[in-house]
């Protein structure tokens, strides 16, 4: 079943799964970094840039077969899912039902980290997704596919040239390799059965 832009539902589902997966991986590194005081595990500050960079790159490779807008959409979805999971992890004391008064500073901490996540993830992932897609196109596409694509491209150019010539000469368009004998017997001129002329209205 084909959806919009020739993208099947299965393909859409895969794109969704990959985007959310990439977002989850990014969210893990961000959460670990933001909450290192609680776990004692810190992957380092550099990971805040590296994780969206690599995950975006992989997402770009995965969307090699898709259109560019699908890659951009996947990158946006990755950012949204990553930020959503980061917010959930920052609100985990409330979600886990910890009793106590959460003062304003707690919410400041959450908002501050949420903004850092949005500002860092979106641009880095978007750029790396596009780079990944470009690299994927060159690295993953086979020679057969490339030569096929080159043939199609040359044929398209040929068609465009023919169209231009036809437009200049005002001659009838013929397909490639057309010969006059292919045209067959000449057809009689068609005459309209019903007159298309407007009838005159006369007063009786």
């Amino acid at each position: 079943m084909q959806g919009d832009g020739g993208m099947s539902n299965m393909r859409k589902l895969k794109l969704l799964a990959w985007s959310i997966s990439a977002g989850t991986v990014v969210a893990f590194f961000f959460s670990s970094n933001f909450l290192k005081f609680a776990t004692g595990f810190s992957p380092g500050g550099e990971i805040l840039v590296m994780s969206p960079l690599f995950c975006g790159f992989i997402l770009g490779i995965l969307t090699t077969m898709d259109e560019l807008q699908h890659s951009v959409f996947a990158s946006i979805l990755m950012t949204i899912s990553a930020v959503a999971i980061i917010i959930l992890s920052l609100f985990s004391p409330i979600l886990f039902g910890v009793s106590g008064d959460f003062v304003g500073l707690y919410y400041v901490f959450v908002i501050q980290n949420m903004l850092i996540a949005i500002v860092l993830i979106f641009p880095v992932s978007l750029v790396s997704t596009i780079i990944g897609k470009v690299v994927g196109e060159y690295a993953l596409l086979s020679h057969i596919y490339k030569s096929e694509r080159a043939t199609l491209r040359s044929e398209t150019i040929k068609w465009y040239n023919m169209l231009e010539e036809a437009a200049d000469d005002e001659t009838e368009l013929k397909p490639i390799g057309w010969k006059p004998e292919d045209a067959g017997p000449e057809q009689p001129e068609m005459t309209p059965v019903v007159s298309l002329e407007p009838e005159e209205v006369t007063d009786e």
Binding site: K14, L35, A38, L88, S89, S92, V98
Partner: peptide, 30 residues
């Protein structure tokens, strides 16, 4: 592409446990 995609999903599943662990520890510390 399928293999890379499956590897990414597996990594995401492992990360999900990591996020749960981090969140749980954070909740306990808080």
């Amino acid at each position: 592409i399928e293999i890379i995609g499956i590897c990414l999903i597996i990594t995401a599943l492992i990360s999900t446990y990591g996020i749960y662990y981090t969140s749980n520890e954070y909740a306990k510390v808080t």
